[in-house]
């Protein structure tokens, strides 16, 4: 494991912890898109089908369990928790997110590294992750006012993607036969989606003002 991969995993982990912290301690999910959280839960479920059959390392298994557990508990909190669910801005979160799944599934059936159920589901999760943030970005654009924790959550998610790209570049030059077009193209698209947000995040940080997106 290289430093970029570790930094990517740690920012990913931090993003999940920030979101759980917000939900658990403030008992609020204001500004958070349930649609995006549901897509992330599906992403992890379909990606980690090999959790018990393909052992890579203790680190890998624990991280997979954390991402699975946290994504499903976040969805549970927003949908079921007596207090938290009242802070959910349902009217601002209208993205028809399940429609995003069909193109991903069709693409995964036709463009994959191997045509087996596990491999197609894994590829599907890669495609779905690339666009899973869209409902959240649409919601941000609508509410415009973003509280600190929500801003940090999305910033950390974007940082995770950026570090993964550096990790791929590093691995390409240091490992033999490390070429994965599917993950790379999907990963770059995913990272580009955060570009706009990053711009405004850094602007507000530089000028020391509250993060607000333009209408």
């Amino acid at each position: 494991m290289n430093i970029f991969r570790l930094a990517g995993d740690m920012t990913h982990l931090a993003s999940v912890l920030v979101l759980l912290l917000k939900i658990h301690t403030i008992k609020s999910c204001a500004g958070i898109s349930l649609k995006t959280q549901e897509l992330f839960a599906i992403v992890f479920l379909t990606r980690y089908l090999d959790l018990f059959t393909n052992f890579i390392s203790i680190y890998n298994t624990i991280m997979k369990l954390i991402f699975l557990g946290s994504s499903f508990s976040i969805v549970w909190y927003i949908r079921r928790h007596r207090v938290v669910r009242r802070s959910y801005d349902k009217d601002q979160d209208t993205f028809r997110h399940f429609f995003l799944m069909w193109p991903c599934l069709i693409l995964a059936i036709f463009i994959n590294e191997k045509f087996t159920l596990k491999e197609v589901m894994w590829t599907f999760s890669i495609y779905l992750e690339a666009i899973a943030i869209l409902p959240q970005l649409v919601m941000l654009q609508r509410t415009r006012n973003i509280d600190n924790l929500t801003g940090q959550y999305i910033f950390l998610l974007g940082a995770y993607r950026a570090f993964y790209i550096l990790n791929w570049i590093y691995r390409y030059f240091t490992e033999e036969h490390y070429v994965h077009w599917i993950t790379w193209v999907a990963g770059v698209i995913q990272t580009l989606l955060y570009g706009d947000f990053f711009y405004y995040y850094f602007q507000s940080w530089k000028n020391n003002v509250k993060l607000e997106l333009p209408a």
Partner: peptide
């Protein structure tokens, strides 16, 4: 067997 696998990533 290829040495680099994307399956060891999360």
């Amino acid at each position: 067997e290829r040495s680099g696998s994307s399956k060891d990533e999360l």
